[in-house]
Nucleic acid binder design. Sequence first.
DNA 1: TGCCAGGCCCTCTTTAGGGCCTT
Length: 218
Amino acid sequence: MLDATCIVLDFETTGLSPDQGDRITEVAAIRVANNQILGHYTSLANAGRGIPSFITQLTGISAQMIRTAPPVHQVIHELARFVGNDPIIAHNASFDRKFLIAEYRYAGLASPNNDVICTLRLARRLLPQLPNHKLSTIASHLGIRFPSDAHRAEADARVAAGVLLALSHRLAKQHDITVTPDLLTRIAHWPASQWLTRLARYKTRVQDSTGCDTQQTV
DNA sequence: TGCCAGGCCCTCTTTAGGGCCTT
């Protein structure tokens, strides 16, 4: 169980690198609290960039769709209000984080300092037996179905939210521990070969600090 | 002319290289 409020974020973009001039084309942010999806913000975004044909083939997002979309600065300001200071969750979070930082900068906003948790890193630790750790593979393994076409922001974000909740549930059940964003952040950054040892030490430290056997939120 | 992301992770490693993952 995940005992916190988090924002699951997914961007569709014109390419892989904001440093190479790529911009976002669509964003979805989903608020997760008390193990439920409580709300979402989704929008296409017009950043004035052309859409490579392979991106249209991959995502279904066309140049025509972007021409009639809200301007990207408006979308980013609305996104920033929705996200607030809650921890951000994303699959391969370094990708979405670099676009978030770039788009905040373009929009004249201060660089976000939200905690960031990566479901790719979590899945590599909690599900090492999988043949790969693509979002679709993890979702299939966990019995999570895409609500619509993959590679659209809201569908990917909803699936990532399901992955987050399923991994949190599995972690809590298998290790008898309260799962918090702080713990997920720690696990994601512990070396993959050491995370179980580190988790045992973490549990011992929490028990010692509380003076009882019951796990507490830290 | 040719190339063009970047951070993480694993291993045949650490004075490195290659695969994975996101669009």
